[in-house]
Write a protein that binds this DNA or RNA. Structure first.
Lengths: 136, 136
DNA sequence: CAATTACCTACTAAACGAGTAGGCAGAAAG
DNA sequence: CTTTCTGCCTACTCGTTTAGTAGGTAATTG
């Protein structure tokens, strides 16, 4: 499994925000609508906020808001941020020191190619794409 | 991460078997060559053996042997068997009851399509492909 | 001021990953 | 027939990750 609840919840919240563009939406409302733990979401929202994917303001009347048009959010960026990595094997996770037998590893090219495929796939989908009802 | 050590070790052992086609190779030798825990591998080998991917015989002079030419082993089959699933999200893992909001889930088609891409990718690679030195 | 909200730190329960340990069972060699 | 080598089986362990809870602090509005 590549994508855990962190990434899936992040997408759902951002889709919810996209559907409610009127001002700032408190997380409480989103969590209630989506049936997601508010407390758990807070941590994920903080990451999204710190990295400039959403804007959050404190206090009464506060909440979260999208920053840009939905077309400018790449799913790949959101998932890499919330999941840490989309690598198919741990050897390819950034931050990991390269495997000692990487030089003559016969399987590494296969993992690398799939890694590229996965990243490209998610980078080719935007939040706007998710908003339109499924055509397939 | 989709592929853990289980799947990676399985591939390495099968590549090792492919390189040593003379009779039955004891797991002890393979584990030593590959620098892998023999005890840990035993569990993985039993799965491969039970499902007809390798043949194992007991006793002195025993060990494991490949069953077919390397070209007839699809990496996808080996990984699905040892990893249980190659699904990008838990919702798609077989055995899991379908998510209650699957019918109107806006992200499900995306996960499904990637799932197909991943399966097709690994099904397009055979053990024979891995044996040839990297060209890329 | 009180209420509401984002944000921060710490804790927890369960599952999973990657092994270990200690056997039993089958087959060959002596 | 016994020893030795092997696959196979069950159970246990230890660390990490996942998916949360709990309880605060800080900012903003009415």
């Amino acid at each position: 499994m590549i994508v855990s609840t962190r990434g899936r919840y992040a997408l759902r919240v951002m889709m919810d925000l996209a559907e409610h563009p009127e001002g700032f939406i408190p997380l409480k409302d989103i969590a209630a609508r989506q049936g997601i733990s508010q407390k758990y979401m807070e941590g994920i929202m903080t990451i999204l906020s710190k990295n400039g994917y959403v804007e959050g303001i404190h206090g009464k009347g506060g909440g979260y808001r999208l920053n840009r048009p939905t077309k400018e959010y790449r799913i790949g960026d959101i998932l890499r941020l919330t999941e840490g990595s989309l690598a198919p094997v741990s050897c390819l996770e950034c931050g990991t020191e390269p495997c000692e037998r990487a030089a003559d590893c016969r399987t590494l090219p296969m993992w690398s190619e799939l890694h590229t495929i996965i990243n490209d796939y998610f980078d080719g989908v935007t939040l706007a794409d998710l908003m339109t009802p499924a055509k397939k």
